[in-house]
Simulated assay, not measured.
Amino acid sequence: MTAFHHREVLSAPATKLEGDARPNPGKITVLPAGSGRAQTQAVLDAGGEVTELSEATRGLIYTSYHDIEPLFEALDAYPNIGWVQLPYAGIDAYAKRLAPYAERGLVVTSAKGSYAQPVAEHALALTLAAQRSLALRSRATKWGPSLGRSLYGNHVVILGAGGIAAELLSLLRPFGVTTTVVRRSATPLEGADRTVTSDEFDTVLPEADVVVLAAASTDETYHLINAGRLRAMKATAVLVNIGRGPLVDTDALESALNAEEIYGAGLDVTDPEPLPEGHPLWSNDRCLITPHSADTPEMTLPLLLRRIDDNVRGFLSTGEFVGLADPVKGY
């Protein structure tokens, strides 16, 4: 495996759980059964005891984003399970069904912050590609006109204030951009020139040269980028989505690109996902799509194993958990 040198970028420090909020330590099961050899070894290296799913199980390391039924079957069958570690930063695949368990005290941790560096790197790549018309040029079979825009001195609006946003702010700094972060709270995000709340999104959107979506997929963010907001953007602006596909109304984006209402788009996530073969966006000269590859398995596995190590130690001894997730809120 290639040695990548990524580090976590956390928007919140480890949280120490005490009293009734802290799950009872005990044996740990890796699910789905037969998966996660590396995850199993990470549990052992952190001092945990791995067991097949049974009455003795107190913690779960879950390894799948798509095959989620075994998780809920385990929680229903063994209500003494007190902690679940999920494999990705986004928890939208599990959130609504996990919410009742969390309300009863289940501690849920995700990989939030673990994958911030590779995803932010990809966001920058998609931004530059969209501005430089690389979708068009990559398909060209003959010399064409000189096209492209520059990132230098732009106003970049980032929706979301997690580790990806924090890391992207750092990567953008050499370009001399002005940055606005849009988040739920008004708490300033370090490194941003301005932080505004979600209800101010429509105010800052028309000012943006680049809009980067790095937010969770929730009921509130569904189709946040719709036909009206695309029309509100500059005709010279680009849209980059490395968050979740449902943040963008795909049909509205296709129409906006065809009407040249925005300059271009870079998408690592789509709605639906995968985007069907033959969908018009694949061949749209203003759109570059990558197949949810901002963080490849080779990049993410070492980071996930580090998160498992931290949280197994927290589960067994310190009570400190990294990446606490809230299924009720959806992230």
Results as ranks from 00 to 15, higher is better:
Met1Gly: 14
Met1Gln: 15
Thr2Val: 13
Thr2Gly: 05
Phe4Ile: 00
His6Thr: 07
Val9Ala: 02
Ser11Asp: 15
Ala12Met: 14
Ala12Asp: 05
Pro13Ser: 12
Pro13Met: 05
Ala14Arg: 14
Ala14Pro: 10
Thr15Lys: 14
Glu18Ser: 15
Gly19Asn: 07
Asn24Cys: 09
Val30Phe: 03
Pro32Arg: 00
Ala33Gly: 06
Ala33Pro: 10
Gly34Glu: 04
Gly34Asp: 09
Ser35Val: 04
Gly36Asp: 03
Arg37Pro: 05
Gln41Met: 12
Gln41Glu: 15
Ala42Arg: 08
Asp45Ala: 15
Ala46Glu: 06
Glu49Gln: 09
Thr51Arg: 01
Glu52Gln: 13
Leu53Met: 05
Leu53His: 07
Ser54Ala: 12
Thr57Pro: 06
Ile61Cys: 03
Thr63Trp: 03
Thr63Cys: 15
Ser64Trp: 06
Ser64Glu: 12
Pro79Phe: 02
Pro79His: 03
Asn80Cys: 09
Ile81Thr: 09
Ile81Asp: 13
Trp83Asn: 01
Trp83Gly: 01
Pro87Asp: 08
Tyr88Leu: 14
Tyr88Asp: 12
Ala89Glu: 09
Ile91Thr: 11
Tyr94Leu: 13
Ala99Gln: 03
Ala102Pro: 10
Val107Cys: 05
Thr109Lys: 11
Ser110Asn: 12
Lys112Met: 05
Lys112Gly: 00
Ser114Phe: 11
Tyr115Thr: 06
Pro118Leu: 01
Pro118Lys: 00
Ala120Leu: 06
Glu121Gly: 07
Ala123Gln: 07
Ala130Tyr: 00
Arg132Gln: 14
Ser133Asp: 15
Leu134Lys: 02
Arg139Val: 08
Gly144Arg: 11
Pro145Lys: 14
Gly148Tyr: 04
Arg149Gln: 15
Arg149Leu: 14
Tyr152Cys: 08
Leu159Trp: 10
Leu159Glu: 13
Ala166Tyr: 04
Ser170Ile: 10
Leu172Thr: 07
Leu172Gly: 02
Leu172Asp: 06
Arg173Ala: 15
Gly176Arg: 07
Gly176Val: 02
Thr178Asn: 05
Thr180Lys: 01
Val182Ser: 07
Ala192Trp: 10
Ala192Cys: 07
Asp199Tyr: 07
Val204Asn: 10
Pro206Ser: 00
Ala208Asp: 03
Asp209Lys: 04
Val212Thr: 08
Ala216Met: 03
Ala216Ile: 01
Ser217Asp: 15
Asp219Thr: 14
Asn226Gln: 04
Ala227Trp: 06
Gly228Cys: 01
Leu230Gly: 03
Ala237Cys: 07
Leu239Asp: 08
Asn241Pro: 14
Arg244Pro: 09
Thr250Met: 00
Asp251Ala: 15
Glu254Leu: 15
Leu257Pro: 11
Asn258Tyr: 05
Ala259Tyr: 04
Glu261Tyr: 04
Val269Glu: 11
Pro272Met: 06
Pro274Gly: 05
Leu275Val: 09
His279Lys: 03
His279Met: 08
Leu281Phe: 00
Leu281Trp: 00
Ser283Val: 10
His292Gln: 10
His292Glu: 13
Ala294Ile: 08
Ala294Phe: 08
Thr300Glu: 13
Leu301Glu: 15
Asp309Met: 02
Arg313Val: 13
Thr318Cys: 02
Gly319Ala: 12
Gly319Pro: 06
Gly319Thr: 13
Glu320Asn: 12
Phe321Gly: 07
Pro327Lys: 05
Pro327Cys: 03
Val328Tyr: 02
